[in-house]
Design a protein around this nucleic acid. Structure first.
Lengths: 196, 196
DNA sequence: TTATATACTGATCAATTAGTCAGTTCGACT
DNA sequence: AGTCGAACTGACTAATTGATCAGTATATAA
């Protein structure tokens, strides 16, 4: 019967869609038909509401990435890279709010002064880079990925590219789907071992 | 003796650094020692101030990209791609405010309702994609770039990746310089014609 | 029934905000 | 000297904001 989950859900959507500063507590309260004081009953202030959301996002991303590793197996590392790209696009599709929220400047800005926020963001990005790095290391072991490349740095580059495509979609600037094939191709060309 | 340029300069920095919504007119006025009413004398409202800044950014980016094409010549298309990446990183380094501003959600959001804002953003991004696309087309002509790739789409992917690296730097998350060599390498591998 | 803690609310507040306006300063031209 | 317009300002306003608090409703346990 608690409205806490409702508040979190509505605030997540609104913060993701319009940003932290452009979303008032009143607006969050109104969308779920609750007094604004109710929000301050469950959360000390607006920033703590944001932090609670960020914590949920972190848990969600870590959980989903673990599930991805459990449920998928790939023959070669390079296939695993492709799978990782697919997974990222898929996750950003069904959990658009999470990625919108991470893309907002407020998260980055808050991390400068709020250590917990910084910690959450680092955990999230490490988790996301790892998805690609693990695939690349696997590929270097089985010979499908060029051995001279730095797995961590190439993983960051791929993440950067894939995340940029996701951004194009969430910002309604370009349809991510239209670039999907080229994205996969580009990643393969970037890291594949050409001797095979 | 007009304070208009001062206002534009201060507002550009503040909007880029803290965002549109988190920057008050009073704050802009105080940083240059001017009454806040002076800002409303030169600009109809806060949004028009923002639009004036965006117009300046557009002009700057178009101007700099034209200068880049005039002042540089490359032997092969693939070298031109590398030059384009270099140029982008360089420009984002000396005009960090421009790119910070473009990365802010407010620009994208405003474009949804303000046609002029949308037009400016489109012109900016077309100009930036073109830098890479022209290089790729050149490379397909001289055989240094794989001919089967779509120049426009590959240009968008490269832009996305390079811009993502710039973002890492402006967001103080990671040093762009540390990824520079890998970035160039990745771009070359992505589009190079392997038959040569 | 009574007690108690949790969930929730209406009324209210102090602070900040974008924006207005009447009036002042000042340099250029006649 | 006098006129005029552009640049600029101090004082103000109406609206919104995050946050507080005293008090109400409800359910569960003693």
């Amino acid at each position: 019967m608690s409205k806490k989950k409702d508040i979190l859900r509505a605030a997540t959507t609104l913060f993701a869609l319009n940003g932290f500063r452009d979303t008032s507590i009143t607006q969050v309260a109104q969308t779920i038909g609750v007094a604004s004081a109710t929000i301050f009953y469950h959360f000390k202030n607006k920033e703590e509401l944001f932090m609670a959301i960020l914590q949920e996002v972190r848990e969600g991303i870590v959980r989903e990435s673990q599930r991805y590793f459990q449920e998928n197996e790939f023959e070669t590392g390079i296939d695993m890279v492709e799978g990782a790209v697919s997974f990222y696009i898929y996750l950003a599709g069904i959990r658009e709010e999470w990625f919108c929220l991470l893309h907002r400047h407020h998260s980055v800005k808050l991390a400068e002064t709020n250590p917990l926020c910084r910690q959450y963001l680092e955990e999230i990005y490490n988790c996301l880079v790892d998805i690609f790095e693990i695939a690349l290391r696997q590929g270097q072991k089985d010979g499908s990925v060029e051995g001279s490349l730095s797995p961590r740095k190439m993983a960051m580059l791929i993440l950067t590219m894939v995340d940029g495509i996701v951004r194009l979609k969430t910002d309604n600037l370009y349809d991510a789907g239209a670039l999907y094939n080229e994205l996969i191709l580009a990643c393969r060309r970037m890291v594949a071992n050409n001797r095979n």
